[in-house]
């Protein structure tokens, strides 16, 4: 690298300016990485506990559905479930976490809890199963938001770490080496010049 550059004052000024920018960029990216890691640790802990809660609630609900299915028959169960239960009201927005656009969900609490099917042909187990799923929905939304945030932060942290490492271990040392090379070359030229002038002076004096 050092052999390909022009040892000129202009190049030296350009390199010094680039080094300044790179150092500032490195500091900023490092701060961004630290901030994101802090946020990520909070989110991932939340994600883990939400996962556990959702899994437990889902397996309980699934048990209730199995009980309902065994008491009223599978086709009737699906028929009851396929009736439109209404639209869930979720509002989606965007959160800014260290310049990463993450989703932000605002759930209005899920469905109202009125059962859409006729009670004549369904079993009471189905009612409790459906109600537990309705209750679970806000938690599912929270999990979706948290998990997506974690995914996005993890990807962004990895990207930022690569950039920080590239700056710290490749670009900045390279520029410092080049600056040193140019400075030494310029000093060398200066010394050559002085020697030449001294020689010329002595030749003139000798005449």
């Amino acid at each position: 690298m050092a052999k390909q550059i022009n040892p000129t004052r202009m190049e030296l000024t350009r390199l010094k300016r680039r080094l300044k920018t790179a150092s500032r960029g490195h500091k900023l990216l490092k701060d961004k990485q630290n901030g994101m890691t802090k946020q990520f640790m909070e989110q991932i802990r939340r994600n883990r506990s939400l996962r556990e809660q959702v899994e437990a609630a889902l397996s309980a609900a699934s048990g209730k559905f199995r009980a309902a299915s065994s008491s009223m028959g599978e086709p009737e169960l699906y028929e009851a479930l396929m009736l439109p239960a209404g639209e869930v009201g979720i509002t989606g927005d965007v959160n800014n976490v260290m310049s990463v656009q993450t989703p932000k969900l605002i759930s209005d609490g899920g469905l109202s809890g009125t059962l859409p099917y006729s009670f004549a042909g369904t079993s009471p187990e189905l009612d409790s199963a459906v109600l537990s799923m309705i209750k679970l929905f806000p938690l599912l939304c929270e999990l979706a938001e948290c998990e997506k945030t974690c995914d996005m932060l993890a990807a962004e942290i990895e990207k930022t770490r690569r950039r920080v490492n590239a700056l710290e271990h490749v670009m900045i040392p390279d520029m410092q080496r080049n600056i040193k090379f140019i400075t030494m070359k310029l000093e060398d030229n200066e010394r050559q010049n002085i020697t030449r002038l001294m020689k010329v002076k002595s030749v003139i004096n000798d005449r």
Binding site: A61, S62, F65, E74, L77, Y78, L81, M82, A85, G86, E87, V88, G89, I90, T91, G92, D93, V94, L105, I106, G110, L111, A129, V130, M133, I134, L136, F137, L140, C141
Partner: peptide, 25 residues
């Protein structure tokens, strides 16, 4: 930029049918 969004579940219909109870397509 708030917007209303919908939820869906994808999978083997017989195994994910229970999500329909929560209003998920």
């Amino acid at each position: 930029m708030e917007k209303k969004i919908k939820a869906a579940v994808v999978g083997d219909k017989s195994r994910v049918a229970m999500y329909a109870a929560a209003g998920v397509a």
